[in-house]
Design a protein around this nucleic acid. Structure first.
Lengths: 239, 239
DNA sequence: ACAAAAGTGTTATTTATACACCCATGC
DNA sequence: GCATGGGTGTATAAATAACACTTTTGT
């Protein structure tokens, strides 16, 4: 044990402290065609030009990490006010060639009906790909994606965040398919229905599925109000 | 949607990127006297001199966040190779007076028999306090502590990390008391015992408690090997 | 009629919960 | 003997899991 405790000098007077390059990188999940997808973009500059990576940007001095992540998200997808959560900071000395760049990764969930990245040349630069079939990604972005997927799989079982990947109104089978895609398992339909329904988090709308060649299923909404009320009473969401 | 995607230039050629001040702060939990405690230190420099805060330090250019956190931990407690996990990055513009300083918080779990912070004047500078009875802390350290406690409460139910807070060998009641302290609840003794025992993660030693004025309880060890084997087979720890 | 999915029912099994209870030990 | 925790038993309720079954609808 040291004789004296090293004390960090966090005063402003000391200006000779190490300064670090910081980025944010977003793992943006979407659910489409029964598949869990992630948004990747083509890097436009530098030695990683033309290669695929997660959408990211430098952190500016006058914004928080969350603001930077939100900015990147809006630039890429046009959406805002959606599920966005900090994942992890990656700081390996060699994660980026040349100078060490620290990145704080976020993961976001967007409804497939909100994907607005079709216009113009964007398809060349940004693409939704199945999370388990990505091309090679730059730097440590594959590792970040893996970490994000692990976090998503865990969270989706313990919090009703999965609803953020579905449109406002959805059928029970769509919800089940979502869980199956995220968790990479198959579920029993009757049991899944009952489990969901008895949580009282789903509100039946008076609408039904349309355009299907079989019996139209009832559409449900997720009720955040009820969830918050239940949570306060000690209810825990578990799938 | 923008006409062209903003693309971060992550090449090394571009050196005029924003640079940030970064610290690590550790929430170090310990379990003693049936209470969950956290290690706080007195700040020695700057305008926060003499006030209590979480142990932290600047991140150096040639170390990862994990290395910095580990370094701080060892400086404070003398222990190494213990449970240490990244919690969250805090980057609010006003979290620190003057320039914006980003901190990446970690949380650590140390066995009470490994607390080696008695020598000399250290008691003046560092103290174990009940997590729910801390003095006022500098900056946003109270918020960081709250986040760490929430994370701990969640993790302790889903992963066998609680064992990191106990000595090598422990009784079932000690384990129960730990869970009660962390989760701030009471548990039923017979049911808790059975639940733990049927996981097959505890190995009975041939030793018994000593120095107690009642029937000496059997001492158990947590078997990490078995846990890893079981985990691979799909076992999930749940309390 | 048939395909496809909607939606319900039934049963066996496992888990959770709430207790009552006896056992061992030191004072 | 009594207090204190160690440790076991048990009955009930609830959750889980597996799967058979009927219903509805567009083609």
């Amino acid at each position: 044990m040291p004789e004296t405790w090293p004390q960090a000098d966090l005063s402003n007077r000391n200006m000779d402290t190490p300064k670090h390059a910081l980025t944010v990188d977003n793992v943006i999940f979407g659910f489409d065609d029964g598949e869990l997808k992630v948004l990747i973009v083509k890097h436009g500059e530098g030695e990683s030009r033309g290669r695929w990576g997660l959408p990211g940007d430098w952190l500016q001095l006058d914004e928080t990490l969350e603001q930077a992540a939100s900015r990147v998200l809006q630039d890429r997808t046009g959406v805002k006010d959606i599920f966005l959560e900090q994942l992890h900071a990656f700081s390996e000395l060699t994660r980026h060639p040349g100078e060490r760049i620290i990145t704080v990764a976020f993961f976001a969930l967007v409804r497939s009906d909100a994907h607005v990245l079709s216009a113009g040349k964007s398809e060349m630069d940004a693409q939704w790909v199945n999370v388990r079939e990505t091309p090679e990604l730059i730097f440590d972005h594959q590792r970040i994606l893996t970490a994000a997927l692990a976090r998503l799989k865990h969270k989706v079982r313990h919090e009703p965040i999965g609803f953020n990947l579905l449109p406002e109104k959805f059928t029970l089978l769509e919800l089940q398919r979502l869980y199956e895609a995220v968790l990479d398992i198959t579920l029993d339909k009757p049991n899944f229905r009952r489990k969901m329904m008895k949580m009282n988090l789903l509100v039946s709308t008076d609408e039904k599925q349309s355009g299907v060649s079989y019996r139209a299923a009832n559409l449900y909404r997720f009720d955040l109000r009820v969830y918050k009320d239940l949570t306060e009473q000690g209810f825990v969401f578990e799938v």
